[in-house]
Design a protein around this nucleic acid. Structure first.
Lengths: 208, 208, 208, 208
DNA sequence: GTCTAATCGAGACGGTACGTCTCGTCTTCAC
DNA sequence: GTGAAGACGAGACGTACCGTCTCGATTAGAC
């Protein structure tokens, strides 16, 4: 029944350290080489691991990089800064800081590009990267509603649409600013952005 | 006098038809194979051209795909729809329609990803793709000011900041919606987005 | 103890069958295409082997063809035909028969031509092709001395000079007849040649 | 009638200087690069000539190199040194001196190798290189007969056989010594060789 | 003096092979 | 049964030459 943790399968168990070393080596290679020049053979060498071991655990470059990059987003948090505006500014700055790191810049857009033709990859990205960010949006909204800054949203469909819109606007703007425009999403920009976003949402909620 | 078009260089001139055929073949290959499986040898074959001809004109896959994708954005226009909101909705829908095409989906994000480690490539993308979109933002704002929908903006530095912000918000949101969230940027979404954006900008302008 | 055959290096061992198949494919390609149109990619295909496998074992076309042609000379023997003249005639005919085969004609002169600018290649040819022929000359002389047809040669330097001269005269004449003059080194020719050679050597030994 | 030298064809005549420059450039390239790395584009550049001009006059690398090398053999002469032995030693030394030059070493064996699969090329080599050498053999024999060193040879078939044999033995031995054994055909070697050859021929003539 | 026609330089063209690289798999031995 | 090591078949890479072609610009003799 409990086949998920087989207690003890026969033979030598897989090295837990290998996973850690491989993901770290992947990020290091992303920094030094970038996505397109990263090779699995090189990652294996850096990790002190055989290529076989690597292929036994990941099906290819895309999946490996998704996992390596996803760990970067684990540090995203939403500490209570006292107001919705401050909360948003805080999390957007964190997000921008991650995107400014070369291992994220090189890898993230590349796997998203690959995911346009690979549904399994898109789902993997959604589950391990996007989902986490989406939770922050939901958490921030709930906290703002508790504070009374936002009215409760009774209609769940309407609510989902709004959350999706907010998420695309926030993540899209930061990503575009950082990776396409090639400029830093610094505090001044984040303040401007947050103001426009919140005023827009408030206005839209009033009109509705 | 005008040495820029040297009238006639010595030797056989380059075939103008080849350029057209190569870019078309590149887009076709993007549709069928996607970025990562696109091969310059295959593109050459599709275009009925030798690999050398291709390398004589483009330095690599990245540059070729930028040019091939850039042509897709030539069709972006800003017809006068009577109001700022209608203008924005119109151009965002056009933009979304282009991003929905597989040759753009596959190629655009990939070259942006590559550009994170190649400044020349980033500049090429900016000049041949982003610049054109930025012009539409400027044109739309000018038209809105003529209509009286927006106040004239005297401070050029402040003006540039605002245009940059708008551009990142518009392009970023549409790209994220289309390519990351994987949902269509349809009329309903565009209407919601435009409303939030315009109300936000109006509010920000009022407060300032 | 004997580190030359390291008992077993780590990793998958090289396929022994591949070497055989590659050399056979090389000879086949030499027959069908000749040296200048022989392609390593084609040889690999014929041998049912990847190009990388071929390059892992030979550094280029020259080295490969030397090895492929060298095997042809393995069949050279010096059976005792009872007299020095008969021995020489026998081995010259064998040598001529090998040079008459298209895989030898095409390849041998070409690698010799290449070796004029590549000392490593010249040494490889010497070791794997010329050396074997030289041994036959030495063996034939020793046998003739046993029979009393030739006097023992006390001075080693003088001996080496004579052997070199004989070797260049025998091999050179047969090669020139076959490949430059383009005529067959048949029994009549070989008989004439052998007579001139032996009479000349005998006369020179008498005069000395 | 005299269509072979059409007196003057219409249009611009071919540059006579180009031929000279091309052949000289070919020899220079043979010295510097060797046969296999010699390219017609490079030769054209060295000669200050367009590739087109080169292809208008030679059909390929093989033919060009034959002509370039053939000119080297123009200097072969047979001055009367007073005896057959001296005449042979003289011409063999001249021949060896030519073969010692890198432009001959690199090119000659290569075109001979190519000629094993190209009858037109073999004929071109025979006509422009071998024929000239063969004439020297005939001339030397005639002179020796005048001196009384050799008896007149009444049977023309027998005579041709002997000349062929001599030619293959002389040319073959020098070529093999120089290019295969990789040693100089110096005066000592030539003296040894000539002695063996003449004693052999004399003995064979006596026995016949 | 044109006119005519083959030459010249330059260099782009469609091909083909090069030798290298990375892929993902397979085979061996050691633990 | 897992691990490192490394050979394997496959196939794209970007480069170099091939031999041909298309240009505009000469360069002669024929008219």
């Amino acid at each position: 029944m409990q086949s998920r943790t087989p207690a003890s399968r026969p033979g030598r168990p897989r090295s837990a350290a290998a996973d850690t070393a491989i993901l770290a080596a992947t990020r290091q290679a992303l920094v030094e080489l970038g996505w397109s020049k990263l090779t699995l053979g090189d990652v294996a060498t850096r990790a002190g691991v055989a290529k076989t071991t690597l292929y036994r655990r990941w099906s290819g470059k895309n999946e490996l990089v998704v996992d390596a990059v996803a760990e970067l987003f684990d540090e995203l948090e939403l500490p209570d800064r006292g107001s919705l505006a401050a909360d948003i500014e805080g999390v957007v700055l964190q997000f921008a800081a991650i995107l400014a790191r070369p291992e994220a810049r090189s890898g993230l857009m590349a796997v998203i590009a690959e995911s346009t033709r690979d549904d399994a990859l898109r789902e993997r990205i959604r589950a391990s990267i996007v989902e986490r960010q989406m939770c922050l949006v939901l958490e921030g909204r709930a906290r703002a509603q508790l504070r009374g800054e936002l009215p409760p949203q009774p209609d769940p469909a309407e609510s989902a649409r709004t959350v999706d819109l907010i998420f695309d606007m926030v993540a899209g703007a930061v990503v575009h600013r950082t990776l396409v425009s090639g400029k830093a999403a610094d505090e001044a920009w984040v303040r401007d952005f947050t103001r426009v976003l919140l005023l827009g949402l408030a206005g839209a909620a009033r009109d509705a």
